[in-house]
Amino acid sequence: MPSDMTTDERASGALRVLEKACEDYHSALVATSEELRSLLDAGSATAEARAGRTAAELGAFAVGHIDIEKFAAFERTGEPVAVTEAPRLEAASRTLLSLLEHGNDLYYVNVDPGADLRDAVARGLGRAGRAFGAARTVELARSGKYDEATHGGWTDSFPPTLWSRREKQLAPPLVVEVDGADLRPGGLADFLDGEQKIVLVVRGVAPPAALARLITPGLLVVQTENPADLGAVAEAAGPAIAALVPADACHFTHSPAADGGRGRLVVRHMPTEEPKRPLGSLSVFQQTEAMRHLAALAAGWGLSAPETTAPSGDGASVPAPAASAADNLAAWILRQADISGMG
């Protein structure tokens, strides 16, 4: 079995949730591939084939009102593809066709234990992004600007760092399976732009608040045990990331679309105890810091959560008094920062 096949039912479920984004990308692939094929075939196309293409391009309004064959005779076929361009265009066409042969595995990456999460995501996006590389290759070849040294590898891999703003709006979604011990998502911020959607399916024990560090004003961040929460990612206008984590991790949603402070960050579950053991290369301090970060944000924006015990920096748990969880957390943060005496 290829390594990039879904092994976790949660990953299959995530792909189903992202089905529409996958279909949108697939449709763009089909359209680009057909457009390129018609360009390559233009020189040798029969009158019948040209008329078929013209009929499609004119659409239903023309039916009964325009004689397609006559109209097609006046369509410019473009300058014939030059001998020197043809190999580039054929390579681009092969790339698009090979991407079309993929099923949903085009949108899935499995991170081997111990491997780097950021590298694996870059590889997955670079693979699907070959479509952009192919389209760019065609444009460059047709305009005589193609340079093998600069553009040569774009049909093999076209990483997100090269994507244009428009390409990022069409970004392929990605579902990533990764061990909890390798869940260091900070580097993924590089890719969260345009309409990029990433879902991490976490295997085994996970750091409690790994995605908290990704919370920024315009990014939808979901960390949850419940696959149903992924719907927000599929519907988000803008970039979004989610992680399916074990039940004992933090569960929260940061939604930029939420109006005002309250409801912007909803923490549904906060572990009662702080981490006690390192996880992979993540120290106890690092895991705890992520929890503190989440707690601080929740306190600042108004926490909507079940009653919890906030983690403390020195490893001791602070019992929750009768006040609201938000008040508790705010008070705790003020104590930690020792700014209570400021006037």
Binding site: E35, E57, G59, R76, G78, E85, E139, R142, S143, G144
Partner: peptide, 13 residues
Amino acid sequence: DPAWQGSLPDMSP
């Protein structure tokens, strides 16, 4: 139909 989106603009030399 993707063909509705038309052909690539001809930018060949």
